[in-house]
Nucleic acid binder design. Structure first.
Length: 800
DNA sequence: GCGTAACTAGTTTTT
DNA sequence: CTAGTTACGC
């Protein structure tokens, strides 16, 4: 794609721009009173940037690839570039298309641009569809916005809805059962994954069918068009459709493409290494005219290959654009020298990379704290102990600590300890708020109100709370729908329900009681529909929760779980209120879209103090003073599934690199000797990545020495320096004072006699003091007791 | 059609 | 282990 034929675009030269070697042109239109500055623009704000950043922010000579290492001020660079284009080249902010990876990043960028430009310079407060509104958002939000306007041509009316994973599954299951295929033999998830992958590659149903190579693919080829058709009927798009349909639109509608190319004088893309083929084509289509494409990425941080991200988009940018300018940002402003040394050493083991080495002027800082725990629970205890030491002992805010893990399942052990010690925390991910059953139930009503064709939502809403509507009744309602649609045009399932409720149609098998129920249902929907545009969304949420009976049913249930569901529903009303308050567009449509496109990370609270827990994937783009990377074990991190894939381990290593480079001041790397997963406890090997961390950067804080890391050369595993006395176990204390115990060892207690150590933990750790060691010891007659290590002696020690 | 019991399977990462 | 699905009896 890419390479537009249009050379340079040129109309006139820009003078007074030192970093414009290409002599590129700015043929900006001047709109709405915004003028090209006649006097030399004030460039002093660029003084905040280092030379490379400055170059990246101001180069306008054509395609630009910025290889921005972790913590190299990438966001700052993009923001300044945006400001530069507006302030110095006189572009209208609405002429710039900026794409970020998450809504949070978009918001941040918007805020920062706003600050740089000063108040009132940015449009977009009010109607986001207005001319001149800002275009800073995610791929999905951008495409959605384009499709709302011009989607008719690809089968989407402007009130289309976005289906999430569970909606997709519900829809596909219906299709599968319609085909009579056994769900157990042909799970919906498999089809959805295949279809999603195809869409990432812009492969539509026909093309897929043509290329189907084996039995499985032929099955997919059969389902794919039916699925697309069903989406169209429901006036719905799934995540991948948002991108694919936009590309189709741009390819097929020249006028639309021309208009957008004309409009977006400059295109900026963040996290370019995580774009998939469809996104790549989208970006390059738009940029092909003016060729003012600036992409920013880091091949070492590409961690989304599993969802179609193609690292080649970065690696081959220079092939796509032979005249591309490449700028590397390698100075890191985030981490200590020690953290960077370790992270560089790990990532150096990857082969597929452009090759880049971060450096910093920051201090060497503390060594990396390495800890081997007895098991997952003890790992959590250590981590929380360290956090409490830093929080209580040194007054560090809790939110300066982040616990990063490979899989969500690992969060539980940490939550247990945090709850137990009453430490506030916030966990990002897991089941998202908007994907919770009760939330989706409420939203289903609102979705029907917004788009009556959304039958996935309609069926869901019909079923909650229970209204005695099963497959049989549903079939009858469908029949009724067909009966009326013959007479009065396409009425859809909702039309059928309305006909039955009003007695227009009276199918056998639907009694008066059910009819009344349906009447109330339709009345609720209609009342809400009448309020669209006037009634605030919060009000609608309240209406649904009260009139539908959802909350009533939960209240009668009376269990703790039901109670928490009610609270979640209440929270939804609050969320809606906040949304209306903050958003440019308080409409129902915008609210629903927001709910569909919202990522977990987007709702991270900045204000509250609390330890932050999340997966490494979620941590991308963030930084924390103190970072714990936990569960560094073979099979967990790197994950077992990755070991089978060709470039799997390299991606895991990048993930590890991302995790390590989140740390600003102190990094902890932990693993456990054994790990309990779905009920089974298994011995766990240390992660291969641990061995790639240079030993001289490590401080070993565990009672249990890791064979791999320590026994290799115990002397060198000692700390290099401790510039700031921290929360970790003090070297001197570990080295001398504490006799090392390990599970399985026999010990003697003065009163209870001989026992076996089954667990070890530590508390009260503070600088200069290793803390108290607690042992869990199984005694013959006392059962398992927790006792201070001082109370026992090792059997065989001291000649006993 | 609903509720309970029993069972199962599936467990990476997410816009 | 546990959440989510299925089978069965009412």
């Amino acid at each position: 794609m890419g390479g537009g034929k249009r050379p340079g675009g040129g109309k006139g030269k820009v003078s007074g721009n030192p970093s414009d070697p290409g002599g590129r042109t700015i043929d900006h239109r001047t709109r709405k009173g915004r003028q090209t500055p006649d006097t030399a623009p004030d460039l002093s704000f660029l003084d905040d940037l280092n030379p490379e950043q400055r170059e990246a922010a101001t180069y306008t000579g054509g395609p630009l690839l910025v290889l921005a290492g972790a913590g190299s001020g990438k966001t700052r660079c993009l923001t300044y570039r945006f400001a530069y284009l507006v302030r110095c080249l006189g572009l209208d902010p609405g002429d710039i298309l900026a794409i970020t990876f998450t809504n949070k990043a978009a918001r941040e960028m918007r805020d920062r641009v706003e600050r740089l430009l000063g108040d009132g310079r940015l449009p977009g407060r009010g109607d986001p569809h207005a001319e001149g509104a800002l275009w800073v958002s995610t791929f999905h939000a951008t495409c959605s916005r384009l499709l709302r306007r011009d989607g008719e041509r690809v089968g989407l009316r402007s009130n289309f809805v976005i289906y999430d994973a569970s909606d997709q599954t519900a829809l596909l299951k219906e299709i599968l059962s319609g085909l009579g295929w056994e769900e157990s033999r042909w799970p919906a998830a498999g089809f959805l994954a295949a279809i999603s992958r195809a869409k990432d590659e812009l492969v539509g149903p026909e093309e897929f069918a043509a290329g189907a190579a084996d039995f499985r693919e032929e099955r997919v080829a059969k389902v794919y068009p039916l699925y697309q058709e069903a989406l169209r009927r429901n006036n719905a798009a799934d995540f991948d459709d948002l991108i694919m349909k936009t590309v189709i639109l741009l390819r097929e509608e020249e006028a639309v493409l021309a208009r957008l190319r004309e409009r977006f004088r400059h295109v900026l893309v963040d996290e370019y290494q995580d774009t998939n083929h469809a996104q790549y084509v989208f970006v390059n289509l738009l940029a092909a005219g003016h060729r003012n494409l600036c992409v920013v990425g880091d091949d070492d941080q590409s961690i989304y290959a599993w969802r179609g991200a193609d690292i080649r988009n970065v690696l081959e940018f220079e092939k796509d654009y032979p005249d591309a300018r490449v700028i590397r940002l390698e100075q890191n402003y985030r981490s200590t020298k020690t953290i960077l040394t370790a992270a560089n050493a790990v990532i150096a083991n990857n082969e597929r990379r452009t090759g880049k080495k971060l450096w910093t002027e920051n201090e060497a800082g503390d060594p990396i704290v390495y800890y081997l725990a007895a098991d997952g629970a003890e790992e959590a205890q250590f981590v929380v102990g360290e956090i409490l030491g830093g929080h209580g002992g040194r007054g560090l805010p809790l939110r300066s600590f982040a616990i990063l893990y490979r899989t969500h399942a690992q969060s539980r052990a940490f939550e247990d300890v945090l709850v137990n010690k009453a430490v506030p925390y916030q966990i990002i991910g897991g089941t998202r708020f908007y994907e919770r059953k009760e939330i989706k139930d409420v939203l289903a009503y609102l979705r029907v109100v917004h788009n009556p064709e959304d039958e996935v939502a309609l069926e869901r809403a019909l079923g909650v709370p229970k209204r005695s509507i099963g497959p049989a009744t549903l079939a009858r309602l469908r029949q009724a729908a067909e009966a009326v649609s013959g007479a009065a045009g396409a009425a859809g399932l909702l039309g059928g329900i309305r006909a039955v409720a009003t007695g227009h149609v009276d199918p056998a098998g639907i009694g008066p009681k059910l009819r009344g129920e349906l009447g109330r249902f339709v009345a609720l929907i209609d009342a809400l529909a009448a309020g669209v545009g006037t009634m605030p969304v919060t009000e609608m949420v309240r209406e649904v929760t009260e009139k539908s009976g959802l909350v009533e049913v939960l209240r009668r249930e009376g269990t703790a779980e039901a109670q928490s569901r009610i609270e979640n529903i209440r929270e939804l009303a609050t969320v809606a209120a906040n949304y209306a308050h903050q958003s440019d567009d308080p409409s129902l449509q915008a609210f629903l879209e927001n709910a569909a496109l919202m990522a977990d990370i987007d709702v991270m609270k900045e204000g509250d103090d609390g330890v932050v827990l999340m997966t490494v994937h979620n941590a991308k783009g963030l930084e924390f003073p103190h970072v714990f990377v936990v569960g560094l074990e073979q099979g967990l991190f790197p994950h077992s599934r990755s070991l089978e894939e060709p470039h799997g381990v390299e991606e895991e290593r990048r993930l590890c690199y991302v995790a390590m480079t989140r740390g600003m001041r102190r990094l902890y790397l932990t693993h456990a000797r054994e790990r309990t997963l779905y009920g089974y406890t298994m011995p766990a090997e240390p992660s291969a990545f641990l061995q790639e961390v240079p030993e001289e950067t490590l401080f070993v804080a565990s009672l249990l020495a890791s064979r791999r890391v320590v026994e290799r050369d115990p002397e060198r595993a000692r700390p290099v320096a401790r510039t700031a006395p921290g929360t970790a176990v003090h070297p001197a204390a570990t080295a001398s004072a504490t006799p090392r115990f390990s599970p399985g060892e026999r010990v003697i207690h003065p009163r209870w006699g001989e026992g076996i150590i089954v667990g070890i933990s530590r508390s009260g750790v503070r600088p200069g003091y290793a803390g108290n060691v607690h042992l869990r010891v199984a005694f013959a007659n006392q059962g398992v007791q927790t006792i201070a290590a001082e109370e026992v002696t090792r059997k065989g020690a001291l000649g006993v």
